[in-house]
């Protein structure tokens, strides 16, 4: 419990006012010694005092902006810490056929988003982070249990894309989520892209270290555009260079990491669905995680309860009789 406007708390001594001034008009009586002892009346007096002090305290707490800070509680479930790494290059806006979608056609990014939404909705316990990349890596949403935020972040990635594909930066960003969050339980990176780029030697060394440190499961949903070379095709000798076949070489890089790795080469939306269903099946290990409750504004409660207290006082006031 904390206050967002603590200066109002200087008013707190006002809570003693109900002790100093009575709610009821004082009637002069000749000798109180004559009055019978009455426990019920004493109780009413104490209740009125307490309710009065409460009303003041609640009003002052409300003014001071009482809130309950963010806190986390441990939870357990079946799922994983997954970072969705989404390609935001312009080519993602094209259909699988490699042209601007028209009519019933669906862009690659839309198809990916559609299946990812289902995936997210079907897995209540996952902690999901979203990162994106194009020319540069985009920090979208850190690992969290907040379903709505994740869905919104994923949907946002269906908006028209940016420029190039710089996959090394994206992977570094995804790995940095783990460094930031130190999650327990199994970790995974789901890379959704329609292409790859050359990973230079420096980046490769750095990525290798990070991958070894966090040891995430890696899933690559490769959205292959018609006519593009596939991941698994062996190119004719002489063409097998990272510059000519970046996708294949990224695939080889992932394989060389020695981590659980699956690549899905998809050529239509249904393949994407199958791939995601496969990931869903694979990432079902039990794990515990910290569920974060967001900060809660308690001003409404304060003012509501204060209103109730005042209502009680009003009833007591209405019961007053004067001699």
């Amino acid at each position: 419990m904390s206050f967002s406007q603590p200066l109002w708390l200087w008013l707190a001594p006002l809570a003693l006012l109900p002790m100093l001034r009575s709610l009821h008009h004082g009637n002069m009586y000749s000798w109180n010694g004559l009055l019978p002892h009455d426990p019920l009346s004493s109780l009413v007096r104490v209740v009125i005092l307490a309710v009065g002090v409460m009303a003041m305290l609640l009003l002052i707490s409300g003014l001071s902006g009482l809130f309950r800070g963010e806190y986390s509680i441990p939870r357990s479930g079946y799922g994983a810490n997954l970072v969705l790494l989404l390609d935001r290059s312009r080519s993602m806006d094209d259909s699988f056929a490699g042209r601007s979608p028209s009519g019933a056609e669906e862009s690659k990014s839309r198809a990916a988003v559609r299946f990812l939404e289902g995936f997210i909705n079907s897995r209540p316990h996952d902690r999901l982070g979203v990162a994106a990349f194009s020319t540069s890596a985009l920090f979208v949403l850190p690992l969290s249990s907040n379903r709505e935020a994740t869905l919104a972040a994923v949907r946002a990635s269906a908006l028209p894309g940016l420029a190039q594909t710089h996959i090394a930066k994206g992977l570094a960003m995804a790995l940095s989520y783990f460094a930031e969050d130190q999650p327990s339980g199994s970790r995974g990176i789901v890379l959704v892209s329609d292409g790859a780029a050359v990973i230079d030697t420096d980046s490769e060394a750095l990525l290798r270290t990070n991958f070894q440190q966090w040891r995430p499961h890696v899933y690559w949903i490769f959205l292959r555009t018609a006519g593009n070379p596939g991941l698994f095709d062996s190119p004719p000798p002489g063409e097998d260079t990272p510059q000519a076949r970046p996708e294949r070489h990224l695939h080889l890089f992932f394989e060389s990491l020695g981590l659980p790795y699956r690549a899905y080469q998809t050529e239509n939306p249904e393949d994407v669905g199958k791939a995601i269903a496969d990931i869903d099946r694979a990432e079902k290990a039990p794990f515990t995680y910290q569920y974060k409750h967001p900060r809660q504004d308690l001003r409404g409660w304060c003012f509501g309860l204060a209103a109730m207290a005042l209502l009680i006082l009003l009833v007591f006031k209405r019961l007053e009789i004067r001699l």
Partner: peptide
């Protein structure tokens, strides 16, 4: 009047001499 009126309710009585007060239901 020292017998207190007939209507039910809450009355605060202040002792005229010593000033103490009692709340009576």
């Amino acid at each position: 009047g020292e017998k207190i009126p007939s209507a039910p309710g809450i009355a605060r009585l202040i002792d005229a001499e010593e000033g103490g007060e009692r709340l009576l239901l």
